[in-house]
Amino acid sequence: MSTFKAYFRKEVIEGIRQYKYIALATGIILFSILDPLMLKFLPTLLHDKIPANLINSLFIFQPKDVIRNYMKDLFQIGTLFVVFTVGGSVNEEIYSYKIVFPYSKGANPVGIVLAKLTHYALVICLFLLIGFSLNYYYANTLFKGKKIGFSVLMLIYFLFCLYYLFVISLTLLFSSITKKNITAGFLSIIINYSTIIFSQFKLFNKVTPYNLIQLANNFNLKDGKITVWFVIFLCGIFIVITIRKINNVELN
């Protein structure tokens, strides 16, 4: 527990001083405001280039569409920000020998990994909450049409939190088996984006983390229990492997 507390505090300071929070906030919160504004002003921006009747038929957005657009950006762009921020988290400790002093003082690998996971999970969940709240507000304020309830928004929020928990734990795992931030980031991105392909097969759909995004897009958790539990299981497996990797590392 003492290792967990020490590392958690260290991660917070690192997040502030290494501008990691700014990077994460940019990837997660920025689009929650930009997306509704872009969709609102898109018809105005394009009115010279596209005939008016086409604009009226093409660009009819409801609050649901705005939130969907934000979710799409979160998956495509937000994931990139998260992956490359978390990517150096473990390998930098090991290969730049920053872990040497803590290790020689008896730091516990379980505490180190859990502190990093908890820290990033909490920060990203907080940013997601801010992002979804802002997006929800702008979507409902700027657009007419059927509004979605706050409880549905919370459901989407939960699914995204879980999806990002998967992203963080997968990236931490890659970070523990690679030497460079960029390698861990790319491997994680490849796996994350390739889950879209697996989700196309009916056989794999329910056990694919991307199904969480699909469920969120449908504003529905129906038939999603298997996905939720399987993703939690995967996260657990990734974390256990990461801890084992750090535990067996030779700081030579």
Binding site: K10, R17, Q18, Y97, K98, V100, F101, K105, G106
Partner: peptide, 17 residues
């Protein structure tokens, strides 16, 4: 390990601390 102190050849710290 609680009774041992260790100074590596090239000590590395978190430079932002």
């Amino acid at each position: 390990l609680r009774h041992i102190g260790y100074l590596p050849q090239n000590p590395v710290f978190y430079n932002y601390l």
